[in-house]
Structure formats: C-alpha cells, structure tokens
Design a protein around this nucleic acid. Structure first.
Lengths: 253, 253
DNA sequence: CGGAGGAGGTTGTCCGACAAGTTTCCGCAA
DNA sequence: TTGCGGAAACTTGTCGGACAACCTCCTCCG
C-alpha cells in the first residue's frame, strides 16, 4: 500500500542510527574533538556499554567498525587504543587509466608481476572449487556469442579465478581491482575498432586455454610462462610492448 | 633457544588463531573476485559461522567492519547485501596484521613478490636521486644509535626508496603501504622483547648492504637475489618460513 | 478470487560464561 | 631491605543461547 511504501521510504531516508554506528560515531567524535588522543586507551567495553545504555555486543561491533577503518587498534587484555590518522590501515589506489599512457603501462606492469606469480601459485595451491571455477570461466569464454559483452566478462572472471586460486586473498584483491579497472578502460577506449574482435578473440581464447592446461597439470612454471605469454601478447594487441628489456629479463628471473 | 624465542615473538605478533578480520578478508576477497557481485545477498550469519568454524559473534563483527567500510549494507530480516563493488576507482586494502597468522603470512608473501621485482627494476631504472636516497637511508641505518627507533625508520625508508626507484609509482605505493603496516605491527607488539635487537640489527644491516651493493652496480639479478635473501631471512627471524616449497620454486622463476 | 494471518527464516540485541592476555601487587625468601 | 615468583584483578576475545523486530511466502478463510 501507499502508506506502507512511504513508511519504508521514510525508514530508508531518515533511518534512525543503528546502535553500533551510533556508538561508533560518538567515539569518533571524541577523537575528533581531541578528548581522545593518539595512544589513549578507550574506556572498557563494559563502561562504554553502560554509558550508551547498550550491551557489550553492540559496543564490540562499534569498535570492530572503528578498527576496520583504522581509527583504533585493540589488544587483548589491554584495551583499545586510538591510532594516528595518517597511519591508517587502508591503502587507496586511484588509477585513472584513461588519462595517461604511462599510467596504463605502470598498472599493466604491476598486474603482470602479480598475475604471473598468481598463476604459479594457483597451479600448486588450487583446490577443486578453484579449478572448477577456472574451467567454467574458460568454457564461458568459448561459448560467448558476442565478444564485446559476455566474452569480456568471462575473461575477467578467468583472471579473477586464477588470482583467487593463488590462495592469497590480498593478491586476489589487487589483481581483481587492476584487471577490472583495465577492462573498463579498454571497453571505453575501444568503442569502434571492434572489427578485429573476431580474430583477436580466437588468439585470446587460445592463450587462456594454454594457461588452463598448465594449471590443470599443476605445472607451476608452465602456468607462469603461459600467463606471461598471454599478458605480453595482450599488451602487444593494445599497441605497446610490455616493457623494453628490463622487464623481459627479470619477469621470470 | 633461538627457535623458542622466535616462537615466542611470533605468538606475541599473532594474537588469536581466529578473528573477525579473517572472515572479513575472505568475504572481501569474494567480492573482489566477482563471486559476490553488487546487489547479491551474503550467506546468512549462521552459514558463514559454520563455514569459517567460528561463532555468530565473530561473523557479526566481521560484517560490522565491512558495513563500516561501505562494502555491504544489512537490513534486518532480509540479510546483508553487497553494495557498489567498484563505484569508485579506488582500491582499499585493510590489513590488520595483529589479528591472524594467515593474514600476516599473506601480506608478507605479497610484499616479497613485489619487493623482489622492485629491486630488479630499481637496479636498471634508478636515477641519481633515487640512488642517493637509497644510500642515505642505508647510512642512517648504520649510524642509528637505538635500533628500536631511528633504525627502524631508516630501514623502512630504505625499502620505500628501493620501491620508488623501480620507476613504477603503483608498485612503490603498495610496497610502502605493506612495509609500513608490517613494521608498525611489529613495533606495536614488540614493546618489551627488544633484547634480541642488537644481534638482529647487525644481520639486518649486512643484508641491506648486499642489496645496496648490487643496486649500485646496476645488477638486476643480483639485486633481486639479495632482496629475496633479505626477506626470507627476515621471515625466518619472525619465526616462520616465507612459504614451503611453492614460493621457493617460483619466487625466482 | 483476494486479502488477512500465520509459519519460517534472518538480522538486531541482550545476557551469561569462559578462555586468553596483561598489569598490579602481595608475600616469601635471600 | 630487596628481588622475584605468582596469585589476583582486570580487559578483550569467543562462544552459545535466547528473544525481539522484521521480511517473505504460503495457506486458509471469507
């Protein structure tokens, strides 16, 4: 009904602060006002719970949020301490790939370093779920009718799956971000010159198949080599070599 | 003796075998890999608790952190939903190293992969400014009176300078962040047990000198080897091998 | 045929309990 | 008196259960 819908909308708009975020906001305010300074210890969870009239669970979730944002750090048996804002525990990378060629090149280089190692690690560490996901992504690439849409999504999934199979979620996070950004930029820049897509698609699938084959054999070195070949070829297709000399030497050691 | 001390340090570094940040990292990885996409509903707290072998409280704190960082939004009675996987072109890495051994190990692995390549690139690409900064940092390490303060800062500057000399600002950003986080965690947890500092300091400076020497000769492979030796030794000093077999094989190709 | 209402599932909050880690301080022995 | 071991107190970390608030869906009755 209408009244029900408007109520829902109202609840979404002026959503009364949830208890944990209310507590977190209060603590963050005390830090901002300087009443809690760097290195200071927060009141105990029991004290905070009593002060805000909530249970310890709510206080713990609030502190979990602050810790996740790098405002505080907890030590068992001691308490939670305010940390310096500048040494926050979050890394931000802004990659506007459409702006500059050198930016694009640097991001591609970082991606290559990580993806080659990720492939080698995936060959050794991947479990059955990882392997199934990789195979499934390759199959979707093969069956993709239009390369500009489903095919690109499957391509991205393939790389994400390999990175995930490395067993290191941080590698997977960085690779997933870089690959996603790069795909977005490529889609944006391409636009019209998709008449070569068919031919390129065949080469691309062949390269991915080589990676897949080495991974299924749990061949670490072969996987790394196949991934390296794929990335250098992809770089060439984009119009520039991955890097002159320097990378060539040490990308594989 | 030594191994016992290292184990003690490791136990001090890594608090609890289970922690919300491990769950949060896993969920964030699934989002990064694309397995969880925008609008998707997370598994229920009960399911997640069972999957990770923890209680619902831990899952709730993990989700509280994700919610605080804007990764998910939860609605009572419905569930938690992924919100805007990459609405902004920024990568966020949350590395709470003090919580979990696997987190620490994964971050160290990522750092090793990047720093070894960065050293090789720096040997080839570094200009005079870069080389001067690296030498200056090494000199500050040698002259540092107290290892727990100035020495650590100089050590960190050395690694940052090498990463910067790679010529790739994205590599430098990621390496600087990871190294800084790691150093910070070690400093934060160590506190009292600095009795080994003197002996470790000498070894540490010797390893850095080897890296410096190779860099000054513009020896890419030698720089990579020296950096690899330093990181594996540092990992051993912290009480665990960098990784069994897998990394050893492919870290150098 | 349609709307009210219940059943089942999910998050939000509370409570109590115990484990693990840290500091403080007391009492005993040299 | 002084040094040191260790108990005690305090704090965070984790667990399990319980119930309320809320949502969806299905059923039943008019």
């Amino acid at each position: 009904m209408k009244s029900r819908a408007s109520e829902e909308l109202l609840a979404t708009l002026v959503r009364s602060p949830q208890s944990p975020s209310r507590v977190a906001a209060a603590i963050r305010a005390e830090i901002a006002e300087g009443r809690l300074q760097e290195g200071d210890r927060l009141p105990t969870e029991m004290v905070l719970a009593a002060r805000f009239g909530v249970s310890r669970s709510v206080v713990r979730e609030a502190i979990a949020g602050l810790r996740s944002n790098g405002f505080v750090r907890s030590r068992q048996g001691l308490g939670a301490f305010v940390v310096s804002p500048r040494e926050s525990a979050t890394l931000r990378i802004d990659a506007d790939l459409t702006s500059d060629l050198t930016v694009f090149r640097n991001v591609f280089e970082l991606r290559a370093i990580l993806e080659i190692k990720a492939a080698a690690l995936a060959a050794v560490r991947a479990d059955e779920n990882h392997r199934a996901r990789i195979s499934e992504a390759l199959e979707r690439m093969r069956k993709a009718s239009n390369w500009m849409d489903d095919g690109v999504a499957a391509d991205l999934d393939f790389h994400r799956s390999v990175a995930a199979a490395s067993g290191n979620p941080y590698i997977a996070t960085v690779v997933g971000f870089l690959a996603g950004q790069m795909r977005q930029s490529i889609m944006f820049m391409r636009q019209n010159q998709n008449r070569f897509a068919e031919r390129l698609s065949a080469m691309n699938i062949a390269e991915h198949s080589a990676i897949h084959k080495a991974l299924m054999k749990r061949d670490a070195r072969g996987s790394a080599l196949a991934m390296r070949a794929h990335l250098t070829a992809a770089a060439k297709r984009l119009g520039y070599g991955l890097s002159p000399a320097a990378i060539e030497i040490d990308l594989l050691g």
